[in-house]
Design a binder for these strands. Structure first.
Length: 624
RNA sequence: GGGGGCGUGGCGAAGCUGGUUUAUCGCGCCGGCCUGUCAAGCCGGAGAUCGCGGGUUCAAGCCCCGUCGCUCCCGCCA
């Protein structure tokens, strides 16, 4: 089909172009037909320009204009005309002009749309994914993918400027026991053998350090066969980074610099030169999570010893049970935490209804809290007078009112929420979930509603000093909390085997606004130390040799001290775009069941393909 | 593996405790009118076995059981 190629885009023309002869190519975004005169809003990636078909236009042009419908792809030949003052549209970049059409050519037609192309579609996500090519025409999706492009570009610029090489690593790799399930690729040439898609380029980037590459990065696709979430997809993208001859703070400073550059360049946002650093234990204590939203404070407090002096049996039982477990573990030389009673003071919310409190309790119960106690600091209390507690659990605090209120720093009209559990982690996590819910419900991170909230839209922090090992109760073994190549902090090296539970790793996570944005560590480069870690997590020498032999082999040849980190590109862009789902910043995401509704993937394959791959499929039995 | 929410014309929603319908509204679609709109307006029209299957009932979009799909979350995700 012959057609006139565009002379400018639909977002480019301004008043200065008045009189110019132009050709526009684009899609019919909106059409307004007044019988005589009619208007077409023509759209492309760059913007929208109003095309006018005047009342005195020739017959052919009028007829073509009549035919136009939503999303027809057309080529318009015309000239730029300044709009009269009263008809200027200040909401449009091109609102001072319009293009008077001399001719319109229909390049292709469009059926009735499954949903309208707007700034943001209001269609169900299911439909948006099925017709992703239409959804991607929206300015919302176009803007987000543009941002993603800009961010990736800025990352490359910054890291290249710091002397990093971008090096590709294989996507068909050896399956290694690294936590998540692997996606497997069967091998035609080797019956019964499989490649795995990488969960991350972890082993390769470490080997690149052994290779002397010194500074490596890669914007790498990673694959994990686990259930999806709003911020988790089966395939996702990491900004994978590794450096030699570094300590923890070198990595943190590098990422601080990189984030600063990226935010400044793409959003024009100035980040602090240095991010706050918070110990893992402290984060759990104060916020009940290792990825706290620090745009607002409302920190949790520990009732501790005061809880024992109340007449609240549930509190005392939880603490007693936790203490008994801790002591029993300690007798075996294992560090385990006991119970805890955590409290949250919700400022000025003594007017919360029973129902509202129950909704908060439900949030706590998701994380296995048995319940949530509450009471109110009586708003009626006289200033300077003794504080009074009322409602809920207040009766158990008889005689302790003043002490409690002072200890918590509560004031008249506040709501106090408490969770007790024999496992400190459960108490913290569940009350932390309540904190998060309150943050969302009350908009605590919004400075316009809460003056005490952070004025920053993006609150970064480093979480450091993670535990190295976690006790796996089901299998009664120690698992590595991060991965097996993480360096335990130096001072714990003597007691690795005798007390794994107390060991901190040289580990760090970057968090922002309640999301984990990056995770990294200093790695082990000493084969002897590596062997000790394998042993603690129950890896026999042979097993370690079989699974990671190539790495331990490489480490025999002068490996440098090294470490790295991997910020998640999808989550980063998601947060920068103000979204809560990474699907909004991925062109073709999978749905929550790992299916791509557009191309109906995954799908069955022909028998001869299976035969070639030496595969036989067994199906789960029907009906359970 | 578990929990919450949802499923009603092409799209988004309403339909309270079963009985007023011919299942409602907005957008879109089709036809008509209209010379300055920009979410154009006005008039008219078509379009739905209320996800699917079963049950209770004189009567089911609404109640019960089952099932499928979507979505958020817990588990899982070093």
């Amino acid at each position: 089909m012959e057609y006139r190629k565009r002379s400018s885009t639909c977002g480019a023309l301004r008043k200065a172009d008045t009189g110019a002869a132009v050709v526009l190519n684009g899609w019919v975004h909106r059409r307004r037909d007044h019988g005589g005169i009619s208007f077409v809003n023509l759209r492309d990636r760059y913007g929208i320009t109003q095309v006018v078909v005047d009342a005195d236009a020739d017959e052919t042009l009028r007829k073509t204009a009549d035919e136009l419908k939503f999303e027809y792809c057309v080529s318009v030949v015309g000239r730029v005309r300044a709009r009269p003052d009263s008809m200027v549209n200040k909401d449009m970049d091109t609102g001072e002009i319009e293009v008077v059409a001399d001719s319109i050519q229909i390049l292709s037609r469009c059926e009735t749309l499954p949903f309208m192309i707007d700034e943001e579609s209001d269609a169900k996500e299911e439909l948006r994914l099925k017709y992703r090519y239409l959804d991607l025409r929206s300015f919302g999706m176009q803007r987000r993918l543009a941002l993603r492009h800009e961010v990736a570009l800025a990352v490359r610029e910054h890291l290249a400027g710091q002397g990093f090489y971008e090096i590709e690593t294989p996507t068909f790799i050896k399956s290694t026991p690294e936590g998540a399930r692997d996606y497997l690729v069967p091998s035609r040439l080797y019956p019964g053998k499989f490649y795995a898609l990488p969960q991350s380029p972890q082993l390769y980037k470490q080997i690149l350090m052994v290779s002397g590459m010194d500074k490596y990065f890669q914007i790498a696709r990673c694959y994990r066969d686990e259930d999806a979430r709003g911020d988790r997809q089966p395939e996702f993208t990491q900004i994978d980074i590794e450096m030699s001859f570094v300590k923890r703070d070198d990595i943190l400073e590098l990422v601080e610099g990189m984030m600063g550059y990226v935010f400044k360049k793409t959003l024009g946002v100035e980040l602090p030169a240095r991010f706050r650093r918070l110990g893992f234990d402290e984060a759990i204590d104060l916020y009940g999570t290792d990825k706290p939203d620090l745009r607002f404070a409302m920190e949790m407090q520990d009732l501790g010893e005061l809880a024992l002096r109340t007449s609240f049996q549930a509190f005392k039982d939880a603490l007693a049970e936790g203490e008994a477990r801790r002591v029993a573990a300690a007798a075996k030389g294992v560090t385990q935490e006991g119970g805890a009673v955590k409290a949250l003071v919700v400022s000025g919310k003594a007017d919360y209804s029973r129902k509202q409190i129950e909704e908060l309790e439900a949030a706590a119960k998701i994380y296995r809290a048995k319940g949530m106690a509450w009471m109110k600091v009586s708003p009626a209390a006289e200033a300077g007078g003794a504080p009074r507690l009322e409602g809920g659990a207040s009766k158990f605090f008889a005689g302790l009112e003043a002490e409690l209120v002072a200890a918590l720093g509560a004031k008249a009209g506040d709501l106090i929420l408490m969770v007790a559990d024999a496992r400190k982690r459960v108490a913290c996590q569940s009350l932390g979930a309540v904190r998060s819910k309150l943050g969302k419900d009350l908009g605590l991170y919004d400075p316009s509603r809460h003056p005490e909230a952070s004025a920053k839209r993006f609150e970064f922090a480093w979480i450091v000093d993670f535990p190295m090992f976690e006790w796996n109760e089901d299998e009664a073994t120690w698992d590595t909390a991060h991965h097996m190549f993480t360096m335990p902090q130096e001072r714990y090296h003597p007691t690795l085997e005798s007390d794994p539970g107390s060991v901190k790793g040289d580990l760090y996570d970057l968090v922002m606004n309640g999301f984990e944005l990056a995770s990294g560590s200093i790695r082990i480069h000493d084969p002897e130390l590596q062997k000790r870690i394998f042993t603690i997590v129950g890896f026999s020498e042979e097993e370690g040799q079989k699974k990671f032999g190539f790495l331990t082999e490489a480490f025999k040849y002068g490996p440098p001290p090294h470490g790295g980190i991997a910020p998640g590109l999808d989550r980063l862009v998601m947060l920068m775009a103000g979204e809560t789902s990474i699907k909004e910043v991925i062109a073709f995401p999978k749905n929550s069941f790992a299916v791509s509704p557009m191309d109906d993937c995954p799908s069955e394959v022909d028998q001869h393909q299976l035969d070639e791959l030496h595969l036989r499929v067994t199906y789960p039995e029907a009906g359970k």
